[in-house]
Nucleic acid binder design. Sequence first.
DNA 1: ATCAAGATTACCT
DNA 2: GGTAATCTTGATA
Length: 203
Amino acid sequence: MKTQQKKLTRSFYTRNVLTVAKELLGKIFVKVENGNKILSGYIVEVEAYKGKVDQAAHSYKGKTKRNEVMFEEGGHLYVYFTYGVHFCANVVTGKKNEGDAVLIRAIEPVEGLNLMAERRFGKTELNEKEKINLTNGPAKICQAFNLGRKENGEDLTGGKIYLLDRPKIPTKEIIKTKRIGIKKSTGLLWRFYIKNNSYISKR
DNA sequence: ATCAAGATTACCT
DNA sequence: GGTAATCTTGATA
């Protein structure tokens, strides 16, 4: 087994949310379905949310039924429903009760393209534009990977959904910007993405 | 019991 | 660039 492709363990996730956010770039997100169907892709864009200081974080005002997974120990998946239409997926970070998580905003697909295409567009033959459009946004990822209520709270150190290690992306190839779609704490530059990657949700 | 807002997307002009 | 879609949650009464 290649050491570069080892599954990330608990200690990766239980660190500071900004550190984990930047290091998540380039890692491979994997979902196993029915024990064999594999969906995977490189994480290319993320945003950090820090419960204790960040007014835009769902966890800012404390634990509720909706956001309780954010207060779990790092290494869990927080999936929430929004706008009456969409799901978004986050990687919880830090110690238990920290309330920190990283929103996965864009993925470059690697395996399971046909299944993703079927779920996104109801067909498997895609043109170039549709191919880029498969997973270049937080809710698109959830549709392509079929992440919903069932996956909320999933332990990423288990066998169904997990991340594979890859070399760190060099700091100079990481672009740092304001987060998208929020109205509070807009001054924080906590969105990170890989420079020159085609699957970024928004330039 | 009621209500406003929401970590978005697709489709329109 | 503008906005409808669509529903759950959390706050307030």
